[in-house]
Amino acid sequence: MNQCTAVALLPPPDPLVALAAPGHRPEAGYVLCELGEEHDDQHAAMLWDEGGRPGSAVWVRWKGSGLGRLTSLPWCPALDPRNEACELFTAHPSPHSWGVTDPTHIAITHQLTQQHPHLFHQPRDGSESGRAPGPDPA
Results as ranks from 00 to 15, higher is better:
Ala20Thr: 01
Trp98Met: 01
Leu73Gly: 00
Arg69Phe: 09
Arg131Gln: 13
Gly52Pro: 11
His43Cys: 09
Gly52Val: 12
Ala8Val: 15
Leu88Val: 11
Asp136Phe: 02
Ala28Trp: 00
Ala85Leu: 02
Asp40Ala: 10
Arg61Asn: 02
Ile108Pro: 00
Gln111Ile: 09
Pro13Leu: 00
Gln42Tyr: 14
Met1Asn: 03
Thr104His: 13
Trp62Phe: 03
Ala85Cys: 02
Pro77Phe: 08
Arg61His: 08
Gly52Thr: 12
Ser65Phe: 12
Leu73Glu: 01
Leu70Ile: 05
Gln42Ile: 05
Asp49Met: 03
Val60Gly: 09
Leu16Pro: 00
Ala57His: 09
Phe89Gln: 10
Asp102Ile: 14
Glu50His: 08
Val60Ala: 13
Pro135Tyr: 00
Gly134His: 01
Pro117Thr: 06
Ala28Lys: 00
Ser56Glu: 13
Trp62Ser: 04
Pro135Asn: 01
Ala107Gln: 05
Thr5Val: 05
Ser94Thr: 00
Pro74His: 02
Leu70Tyr: 14
Thr104Phe: 13
His92Ala: 15
Trp98Pro: 05
Arg61Ser: 02
Met1Ser: 06
Ala45Phe: 00
Gly68Pro: 06
Arg25Thr: 14
Gln3Cys: 01
Gln111Thr: 13
Thr109Ser: 15
Gly68Asp: 05
His43Arg: 06
Asp49Val: 14
Ala6Phe: 06
Leu32Lys: 09
Asp102Ala: 08
Leu47Thr: 11
Leu73Asp: 00
His110Tyr: 06
Pro22Gly: 03
Gln111Trp: 15
Asp40Gln: 10
Gly51Trp: 08
Leu32Val: 14
Glu27Thr: 11
Gly126Glu: 08
Ala85Gly: 01
Gly52Trp: 12
Pro117Glu: 07
Trp59Asp: 10
His121Ser: 07
Gln114His: 13
His105Met: 04
His92Gly: 15
Thr101Met: 15
Leu88Trp: 11
Ala107Phe: 00
Pro93Asp: 10
Val58Arg: 07
His116Ile: 06
His43Gly: 02
